[in-house]
Design a protein around this nucleic acid. Structure first.
Length: 344
DNA sequence: CGTCCACGGGAATTGATGGACT
DNA sequence: AGTCCATCAATTCCCGTGGACG
């Protein structure tokens, strides 16, 4: 029943972008100067997750490369690469392709890119609000011809802690807001994915509409649910997804995503998670005390606060509630999650 | 109003690591 | 081979803030 699983993967870039014409136009406008050999305008895309921000950015770059051959482009996920150096390293890998010797200083990295890049180039800065060292935006500005597309969940001030004299010279000409997809659009997206990835007649309109409704405008969740549904159906030897499986598929896709996230946690993060699984609603200090009991090589609270706790928040595994002076941490959903994948 | 508590974060320091240089 | 240097994760110290409470 599943003919091509790749169309359900997160990094799949569909050939047609559905329901985002206005957004596509804005981004391609921003990139248009490159067609004449100039530096593009920076632009900033924001909105909730699963609404096509990254897809639009990538599709706009793809479109540009159909006009102008081989425009150097890079993709940096600032969630993973959040330091100045990590960003510049990824940049030079993607943009130039040549490996710079490790332990090259940031200065040398910039020089290297500056030297190797002739003509315009564009870099996608995904999850740019996670950048710890925003000075890197200044570094990017210093590289002749380079412009960027920033992506974040909320509209943030990227230049908040940068020197005013510098920020006045860096501009963000386009700010593009992404709202949740309407159900009809999600259905349309799912229809196309099903056509590409599943056998003929695998889904009907009502099934897709129900998935669309249950996933609340989040295309990533909807596509995951479609994939899980197809898998469940083929296990039963069916060639189509029956309506009765849809609710299960949506719920199960959610668990799957969560399980995947948990499996990527390190020991510290997992210990924190376990502590909260035992008792919810702890304040930071209490949580730290439990964590120290669980983990045999605990890090300090200072470090936990700066590194591990924000990760858990960002992964959407814990909710934090400011409560006048203290913070309460709780797991995102009430049902007790599986900590150990082998029990699945 | 002063004090305590929980929290945030700047900054100096340490220790391991991995080159680069002699 | 041995020394030196830069980097990075982790730690430690410490001060600031803002609300609660007597």
């Amino acid at each position: 029943m599943i003919r091509d699983g790749t169309v359900f993967e997160d990094d799949h870039l569909p050939s047609v972008i559905v329901g985002r014409n206005r957004h596509m136009n804005e981004v391609t406008d921003a990139l248009a100067p490159i067609e004449d050999g100039f530096r593009a305008e920076n632009c900033f895309l924001f909105g909730p997750s699963g609404v096509g921000k990254t897809t639009v950015a990538r599709a706009a770059v793809r479109e540009l490369r159909q006009e102008v051959l081989d425009v150097p482009h890079a993709y940096v996920n600032c969630w993973q690469d959040y330091t100045r150096k990590a960003v510049l390293e990824q940049l030079s890998r993607d943009l130039i392709g040549s490996a710079v010797s490790r332990s090259a200083s940031t200065g040398r990295l910039i020089e290297h890119v500056q030297h190797e890049l002739n003509g315009p180039g564009v870099v996608i800065l995904d999850e740019v609000d996670q950048l710890r060292e925003t000075e890197v935006l200044y570094d990017l500005h210093e590289i002749r011809g380079l412009s960027w597309i920033g992506i974040a969940n909320r509209e943030v001030d990227l230049f908040a802690d940068l020197d005013d004299r510098i920020t006045s010279r860096i501009s963000v000409a386009y700010r593009v807001r992404f709202d949740s997809y309407r159900e009809g659009t999600i259905t349309e997206i799912l229809t196309r994915r099903a056509r590409e990835g599943l056998g003929p007649g695998a889904v009907d309109e009502n099934v897709l509409a129900r998935i669309a409704r249950l996933t609340k405008g989040d295309a990533r969740r909807a596509i995951a649910a479609l994939r899980v549904g197809a898998r469940m159906a083929s296990r039963e030897g069916l060639s189509a997804i029956p309506m009765r499986l849809v609710d299960d598929a949506v719920a199960s896709a959610k668990r799957e995503v969560r399980q995947k996230t948990i499996s990527k946690l390190n020991t510290h993060q997992r210990a924190l998670y376990e502590a909260l699984a035992e008792e919810d609603g702890l304040i930071q200090k209490e949580l730290y005390a439990r964590y120290r009991e669980i983990h045999d090589d605990p890090v300090t609270l200072r470090y936990l606060r700066a590194n591990h706790l924000p990760k858990l928040e960002h992964y959407n595994l814990v909710d934090v509630e400011q409560h006048s002076g203290s913070k309460r941490y709780r797991l995102v959903d009430a049902d007790h999650p599986e900590l150990h994948p082998e029990r699945a």
